[in-house]
Design a binder for these strands. Structure first.
Length: 474
RNA sequence: GCCGCCAUCGUCUAGAGGUCUAGGACGUCAGGUUCUCAACCUGAAAAUCGCGGGUUCGAAUCCCGCUGGCGGUACCA
């Protein structure tokens, strides 16, 4: 059996979009499931919109997610180069062949001519397509047009057939190609269009399965025509749905974070991102859910390896999922909680000022762990230990806090257990409200109403610091 | 305009003609635990399966139509 080869071909016109990451992931899962190869190809054929910094971001983001490719612009491979901008010669070789074989022809029509033709067809309520008149040009006609200074585009000569193909996700689809006529495959400046370039790349790179976004679904018949004309068998196709925002429009900038980088910066763990993305359009097998229930872990938590083992492209849904940040955050919290203190420390290290003691931070991390949804939440819990903002307490709160000061001064063993028992004693003796009293103390020491467990906080902060803060209270 | 794809709780989904008075997860709400906030535990509300027709003894599941959403139709990708 031939080796499975899949690819992702992002265009570097922006940072890696989560939708592209989703597609990349499914390509990767599929390839790895069959012990095949996954290829990264940079689609920078539109140079005006492509930027190197975006290519770098795409590569870094995919790496961060843990998606490894076997061939790509950065690591090379047997079918290099892997940037479309560097493959122009190859495209021209194929273009020449199409022209030579009579499967393509030069079209000298101007955009205006084309537009009016199209308008007329729309008025008649029939499918808009090129008349094909340039395919009938004589040598003399052609010469005349060239003399006029016209530069031709290249059109593919559509054999007008009914094309039936099986999409691995969507099933059998039949399209009458006569509906779209002869389409352009190369611009008048000589550059090739995506349809042709992608087809050639897939041929050259021996892609066996083209798994991509649904925007390509309608383009499949054209590409099949191209494959046939070039004498190659098309790959298997599978079209994933786009990811949508809660307002049911395509996920875009105005909805907030759309790039993988933004989620990384937000403090989302790559493994949570992958796990979440995997649940969009693909349901976690019941056996894994059952096993997780037995183990007492969240049902939908699956490892990379488990996804690869169980991934079936036929199980992927074709309906449009909405990207739900809330669920992502929940899942991220689950992953954060599964980290050891040391692991969590490493992940938040970059958020911690250099002069902060590691031992203390580790203790704080341990306490903050099940309160965090993102890594960035850590700063919120760390903050009270770094700065003290003087807070104004209400009179009664002030009074409550003052009851602790003399006792605290005399404590020899300053630790959470000791502090808790002493404080509870004070509350008991004074017949005070636990809730109000401890809140007053918390406010006095941390300046925050919300925070880590009080006595642990006092312990970590240290006697000297706590006393000084209590004295500063207004 | 023409063509294609899609349609189950607010969201992700289970569901391949009877086991569905539709199951789970996130979110929401209520209660428990509790020094706050979380975490954790218990429970609840939440889909007349987009609508209308068929087929069938029986349909979320099959067929047709409609509606809505999305996409393609470009010398965009």
């Amino acid at each position: 059996m031939q080796t499975v080869r899949t690819r992702i071909a992002p265009s570097p016109s922006g940072n890696l979009h989560v939708g592209t990451a989703h597609t990349a992931l499914f390509n990767f899962f599929f390839a790895r499931h069959f012990k095949g190869k996954f290829i990264l190809r940079i689609d920078d054929s539109d140079q005006s919109r492509s930027q190197k910094k975006y290519e770098i971001n795409i590569i870094e983001s995919l790496r961060w997610l843990g998606i490894q490719w076997d061939e790509g612009p950065d690591i090379g491979g047997p079918y290099s180069p892997y940037r479309q901008s560097e493959r122009k010669n190859t495209y021209h070789t194929y273009l020449e062949k199409l022209l030579y074989d009579g499967n393509a022809y030069y079209c000298y029509c101007t955009p205006d001519e084309l537009n009016s033709e199209r308008k007329l067809q729309e008025q008649q309520k029939i499918a808009t397509k090129y008349s094909g008149k340039c395919s009938l040009l004589t040598k003399a006609d052609t010469q005349e047009l060239i003399d006029q200074g016209r530069k031709p585009a290249v059109r593919f000569k559509n054999p007008c057939a009914r094309i039936t193909f099986t999409d691995l996700i969507r099933g059998t689809i039949t399209v009458d190609t006569s509906l779209f006529g002869d389409f352009i495959i190369a611009r008048s400046d000589g550059t090739t269009l995506l349809n042709l370039a992608a087809t050639i790349d897939d041929i050259e790179m021996k892609i066996t399965h083209a798994i991509r976004g649904e925007d390509f679904l309608n383009l499949v018949p054209r590409q099949i025509l191209l494959f046939n004309a070039l004498g190659y068998i098309p790959p298997q196709f599978a079209h994933l749905s786009f990811l949508y925002a809660p307002d049911k429009t395509k996920l875009s900038k105005r909805h907030g974070a759309t790039s993988v980088t933004e989620y990384k910066d937000m403090g989302i763990l790559p493994e949570a991102m992958i796990n979440y993305l995997a649940t969009l359009g693909w349901a976690i097998p019941p056996a894994i859910i059952e096993r997780n229930k037995l183990k007492g872990v969240a049902e939908e938590i699956v490892s990379f390896q488990e996804i690869i083992e169980n991934f079936q492209i036929e199980d992927v849904k074709s309906s449009a999922p909405i990207f739900d940040i809330e669920k992502l955050k929940w899942m991220n919290g689950v992953y954060i909680r599964s980290l050891s203190d040391e692991q969590l420390f490493k992940r938040v290290e970059n958020l911690i000022p250099q002069d902060v003691d590691k031992k203390r931070t580790l203790r704080i991390a341990a306490l903050a762990k099940n309160r965090m949804k993102t890594l960035n939440d850590f700063t919120m819990y760390l903050k009270p230990f770094l700065h003290y903002v003087t807070v104004k307490l209400e009179n009664n709160q002030h009074e409550l806090v003052s009851k602790f000061l003399p006792q605290f001064n005399t404590i020899k063993n300053w630790n959470a257990v000791e502090l808790e028992s002493i404080c509870k004693q004070i509350v008991n003796d004074g017949q005070l409200s636990i809730r109000d009293t401890f809140m007053a103390l918390r406010l006095a020491v941390t300046g925050e109403k919300i925070g880590l467990p009080l006595f642990e906080t006092l312990d970590i902060m240290g006697k000297k610091e706590v006393l000084s803060r209590m004295e500063k209270v207004e």
